[in-house]
């Protein structure tokens, strides 16, 4: 168990280094340069939690509990997005059940990735948003799987049933957790990103410009047919990538 502790220290040090680097190189400051960011974060957290509950009421097979996080990542920047995700899980831990706390790094990664993709111009048309959603899912899986393993592989979340099933078929813990995440995460994160995109589409350009990185959400005007083709190609590529990743894992 001392090995776990050492790994935890290494992970914490890595996070500290990244944050320090972002602060020293002034990458972080722009995100927080406007009061709009500080006011948007609580609203975004409330959106995460309320929509998460609505989805439970509607019994949909997704979580959709990070729409607010993605919105902040796009409008204010990756670091503000990461903070929103982290605080969102922290607050959910306070008001629902503290089982949310171990997943704080995953939520932060979601906001960070959304922000980085948006900074690269990948939140301007809907097929790019699909790609962003997929990248968020990959990042969330990379960060989330070790945590899931550290927690013994099975937590109180619904997708653990898949993990439990895979474990029974004789697969290892890491393998089962990774497979589960590759099955669940892309659908959820792509839907989340598309919903966030629809929300941004409904807000005026003048209003969006008030946020530190509002230009990330100024949507491209493109021709419909070309968009559709690109979107189809993207989805096919994503499916192939998923199969290439998941199938070897399950066969090992």
């Amino acid at each position: 168990m001392s090995q776990d502790f050492l790994n935890l220290l290494i992970a914490l040090a890595a996070v500290g280094l990244v944050l320090g680097w972002a602060y020293v190189t002034k990458r972080m400051q722009k995100d927080f340069s406007s009061t709009m960011t500080w006011v948007l974060i609580p609203v975004a957290i409330a959106i995460n939690i309320s929509i998460g509950q609505l989805v439970l009421v509607l019994k949909l097979p997704v979580y959709l509990d990070s729409i607010g996080t993605v919105l902040v990542g796009v409008l204010c920047g990756p670091w503000a997005g990461a903070l929103t995700g982290a605080l969102s899980n922290f607050v959910a831990g306070i008001i629902f059940d503290p089982g949310w706390w171990p997943w704080i790094p995953v939520a932060a990664t979601i906001g960070l990735t959304a922000g980085l993709c948006a900074n690269a111009g990948f939140f301007k048309t809907w097929w790019k948003v699909v790609v962003t959603g997929f990248l968020i899912a990959i990042a969330a899986t990379i960060v989330g799987s070790p945590i899931a393993v550290l927690l013994g592989g099975i937590s109180a979340s619904g997708s653990s049933i898949i993990t439990a099933f895979l474990l029974q078929t004789g697969k290892g813990i890491l393998e089962s957790v990774l497979t589960t995440n590759f099955l669940v995460e892309p659908i959820d994160k792509i839907s989340t990103s598309l919903l966030a995109f629809a929300i941004l589409d409904g807000l005026s350009a003048r209003y969006l410009a008030r946020f530190p990185r509002g230009e990330n959400a100024q949507l491209d005007q493109q021709r419909r047919t070309s968009e559709l083709v690109i979107a189809l190609v993207t989805v096919v590529i994503l499916v192939i990538v998923t199969i290439v990743f998941v199938v070897p894992l399950t066969n090992n």
């Binding site: 974060i41 609203v43 957290i45 409330a46 939690i49 309320s50 607050v91």
Partner: peptide, 11 residues
Amino acid sequence: ISTLQIIPQMQ
């Protein structure tokens, strides 16, 4: 603090 106060209203 404002998150803790907004959530009940949103709910």
